[in-house]
């Protein structure tokens, strides 16, 4: 780190300087390895954005160009002509938004009951609730699909309807991941908090929403970010329960774009760039929330 350590003229040939010099040589190796590893990691990200404004000729040439020779807004605007991207954006916002809010509410209630309330059979109930996490969604996707169809929620071939939205979100209105995370967060507050609130004549509902929820805001934000990302990125379920471009979420829409526009890769990449922006912003600026959510599962 210090420049003097790498300057050979000031060497007093003690072991100490020699070791420091070796460390900085090691550091250079570390940098080189990391940068080499970064190239394949970052390239698809680079391509998703630079490719989205590349002129068609750049992408279709063989071999393809890595650096653009021009700037083509046409791709980005063309996306909106080719698929109802704006509509699908809205569909995704609705789907992920409803899931996030609903799951936070159901999780906050359940987490509070498990963390702070007297409840007969609590350990059993908690174990039973946690067991739902062990069931992979794909293993029960057929009956879930059949139920949604039975309830008449797979209707229409036009735009988004309340029924279709309901079909998209229903199975995800509660989840034990967020509940577990919030329970851990709630458990960290001292019992005196509740005692003081009871003295003031504060019931469970008021205590939960007026005192505990504001105090646990960072954990709730972490759960919210995680729930939103998962919902926004869903693929299998929205593929099954939407019937037309107007009903599809963004994730399904961009893959349809790929099928429809085989010849126009610029358009396809532009669709990806537009749909990845929200989640990219979350990773760039909300990383600490993501890490909080991840480590709840990993560190326990």
């Amino acid at each position: 780190m210090t420049t003097t350590a790498t300057r050979p003229s000031t060497v007093d040939s003690t072991g100490r300087t020699r070791r420091r010099r070796r460390v900085s040589a090691g550091r250079i190796v570390v940098y080189v390895v990391l940068v080499l590893a970064l190239i394949p990691v970052l390239f698809p990200v680079y391509y998703a954005f630079v490719g989205s404004v590349m002129p068609g000729g750049d992408l279709a040439s063989s071999p393809p160009k890595v650096f653009p020779t021009g700037f083509a807004w046409r791709n980005l605007t063309g996306v909106f002509d080719s698929i109802p991207l704006a509509t699908q954006y809205l569909n995704s916002v609705l789907q992920a938004g409803v899931i996030t809010v609903a799951q936070l509410v159901t999780s906050i209630f359940a987490a509070y009951a498990f963390a702070w309330m007297r409840l007969a059979g609590k350990r059993f109930l908690f174990a039973a609730f946690m067991a739902t996490l062990m069931v992979p969604a794909e293993s029960i996707i057929i009956p879930n699909y059949l139920h949604i169809a039975d309830w008449g929620l797979l209707t229409g071939t036009g735009g988004m309807t309340p029924g279709v939205l309901l079909g998209l979100v229903l199975p995800f209105l509660a989840n034990m991941f967020g509940t577990f995370l919030l329970r851990q967060a709630f458990l960290q507050f001292p019992g005196e908090l509740r005692d003081a609130a009871v003295m003031d004549g504060c019931g469970h509902l008021r205590f939960l929403w007026r005192i505990l929820v504001p105090l646990a805001r960072p954990s709730i934000a972490a759960a919210g970010v995680y729930i939103f990302l998962t919902a926004w990125n869903q693929y299998f379920w929205p593929l099954l329960v939407t019937r037309s471009p107007g009903q599809q979420t963004l994730q399904i829409g961009i893959t349809q774009l790929r099928n429809a526009e085989v010849g126009d890769l610029g358009l396809v990449i532009a669709g990806v760039a537009l749909s990845v922006i929200p989640t990219l912003l979350i990773v760039l600026f909300g990383q600490r929330y993501i890490v909080r959510g991840l480590t709840a599962g990993a560190v326990r």
């Binding site: 990691v41 698809p44 990200v45 990125n233 749909s275 979350i282 990773v283 760039l284 990383q287 993501i290």
Partner: peptide, 11 residues
């Protein structure tokens, strides 16, 4: 290195 996390399976 964390950036790919922003990409969904579809993107």
């Amino acid at each position: 290195f964390a950036l790919p996390f922003a990409f969904s399976v579809a993107t």
